[in-house]
Amino acid sequence: MDLTIAILVTVVGASTPILIAALGELVVERSGVLNLGVEGMMLLGAIAGFVVQFHTGNHYLALICGAAAGMAASLIFGFLTLSLSANQTATGLALTIFGTGFSALAGASYSARPVTLMSPIFPELAAHPVLRVIFGYSFPAYFAIFMVFAIWFFLKRTRAGLILRAVGENDLSAHSIGYSVIKVRYFAVMFGGAMAGIAGACFPLTLTPQWAEGMTAGRGWIAVALVVFASWRPFRLLGGAYLFGLVMTMELYAKAGGGPLSAIPSELWAALPYIATIAVLVLISLRRDASTNAPACLGKPFMPSN
């Protein structure tokens, strides 16, 4: 029982940044834009969050600055792909490479500088042996779950959400009835950047209180895969993020505990999220139900003929 609780607490910690980054990417992709720069934006958010926390000691300000850094990077992506209609795949990959390099440069003088982790929101309940599984976390874990509901509500129940989906499904039609496709996509891309930045800032603020180059170690790519795995739906994303987090965490608990699961080679554990994503893609393609499919305009630059 105690161990189960402990595992779940670690799972939530590991899943939270993936969930936050993937939620941002989900909104971006629903507007018809594919931004593969999540990993790079996360690293920029991580270094910005670290630096601000180190100098001010304020975790919330650090999260906000992480979001700002991710958003600033996403604006570069937005300008190139939306205003200049550059190839989204190539620009996204370039953004990841840029984010990796720039964060390393900015963080070079911050090695050997520890910071402190964010404290749980409910300190008394966080010490409870059982209730800590629900109340034992710092702000980002709750923020992530709140955003699942908020994004679901936004996409499903608001006019702005409908417009965003329309832009992603059929940009020309949305354009012809008077909506600014480019403007909507800019907002979506900036939102995705801010979420990726927060997700990155979670690493030094909630997981391991230090700056290390490349410290997100591929979680941005898992977030991108997760959006596909969740077939672009917020609640499936929530389930998928915790499932991926469970896979990543169980590997370590199984090996440390020496049980039967520890016989599974670590390479297989590491590949599981991607194998699951491919399996979901195959399942989607087998189904005729169009609503489970990717946004129709995903990855296509918007170029009205006149």
């Binding site: 402990a6 670690t10 910690g13 590991a14 391991t208 410290m215 170690a217 979680r219 608990y253 440390a256």
Partner: peptide, 17 residues
């Protein structure tokens, strides 16, 4: 050799056990 978050989670997994 370098994935601090995974190292940290591995440490948590061992301490929890």
């Amino acid at each position: 050799w370098n994935d601090p978050a995974k190292e940290a989670d591995a440490a948590r997994a061992m301490i929890d056990q």
